[in-house]
Design a protein around this nucleic acid. Structure first.
Length: 283
DNA sequence: CAACCTGTTCGCCA
DNA sequence: ATGGCGAACAGGTT
């Protein structure tokens, strides 16, 4: 479940190969039509061969690995649902779900994706590839503020907050568990609609989103052990209870996603009942 | 063994 | 044009 923090962690895994030259690039020969769609494989192999690994960057759930002395060769990877980056020995024999194997003299940098929900793209350009430049403002950026969140919620005033938080165009990096963690901290029921929030609640939601993003990255960087004070540590358990008030956690499908919340810390509003019915009024 | 789960995209509908 | 929502996608696990 690669979300923002796991993606940032994944980025660092390949960093052991920074500065070293690529000797060879191998791609999955079968079952990779989806992950490698629109990828010019021959062009990628030709372009990376002999080039040093220049730098890496993560934005939300997106990863960029740049190659070449000037970093002009951009390998963009999205891990999908269960994709992972790994470092194997120089003689690594590709696993059947290894979508990409970038060989260097001392190691192999591997992108493995069992579910084939990931995506690999490649661009060679003097500037920044458009696919990278047009990514939305990161959660920790100044542009991600209460005004931006408020605008977004205003356009989704009848949508539940849970699916809205999963929208990568405004909340890049937020995934299923982060969305639940954010709503729990903000004391907002996941069924609450965007139009129901006060200005103060929008400010809280924005602040908490930044906080969860920052702390999740810090946790992953240090010991990968999410504190028991987080909803995250309890949401997977059968039964689990709220780490704040001890009440039994509630679970339901919302927007097609398994959702966990505390019914007492995150009370539903009267107007939220029946929110799945068709709106009778539009503006 | 069919259902499940996950993030994104796509298609359809209003 | 835009929002909302369900289906599709892949395949290991239950």
């Amino acid at each position: 479940m690669p979300e923002l923090a796991e993606v940032e962690h994944s980025r660092r895994i390949w960093d052991v190969g920074l500065g070293d030259r690529v000797t060879r690039v191998e791609v999955a020969t079968n079952a990779a039509g989806r992950v490698l769609r629109d990828l010019d494989v021959a062009g990628l192999q030709r372009s990376l061969k002999g080039q040093p690994f220049h730098s890496s960057e993560a934005r939300g759930k997106q990863l960029a690995f740049r190659f070449g002395g000037d970093g002009s060769r951009w390998l963009l990877i999205h891990l999908g649902m269960e994709g992972s980056l790994r470092v194997e020995g120089p003689t690594h024999a590709p696993h059947k779900h290894d979508m990409l194997v970038i060989r260097q003299a001392k190691r192999a940098l591997v992108f493995r994706d069992l579910r084939h929900f990931g995506r690999v793209r490649f661009f060679e350009t003097d500037g920044t590839p458009e696919a990278w430049a047009k990514l939305p403002p990161a959660l920790d950026s100044k542009a991600f503020d209460a005004a931006a969140v408020g605008d977004f919620l205003a356009r989704r005033k009848r949508s539940a907050l849970k699916p809205t938080l999963l929208d990568q165009r405004r909340f890049p990096g937020v995934g299923n568990w982060m969305a639940d963690e954010i709503l729990w901290r903000a004391r907002l029921a996941p069924q609450t609609t965007g139009g129901e929030l006060s200005a103060k609640e929008i400010a809280t939601l924005t602040r908490v989103t930044k906080e969860v993003a920052r702390k999740a990255i810090a946790v992953v960087t240090h010991d990968w052990d999410y504190p028991k004070t987080w909803l995250f540590a309890h949401r997977w358990e059968d039964g689990g209870s709220c780490p704040r008030c001890g009440h039994a956690l509630a679970r339901a499908m919302l927007g097609g996603r398994r959702t966990c919340w505390c019914p007492t810390c995150q009370p539903r509003r009267a107007s939220a009942f029946g929110s799945r019915s068709t709106p009778k009024k539009t503006l």
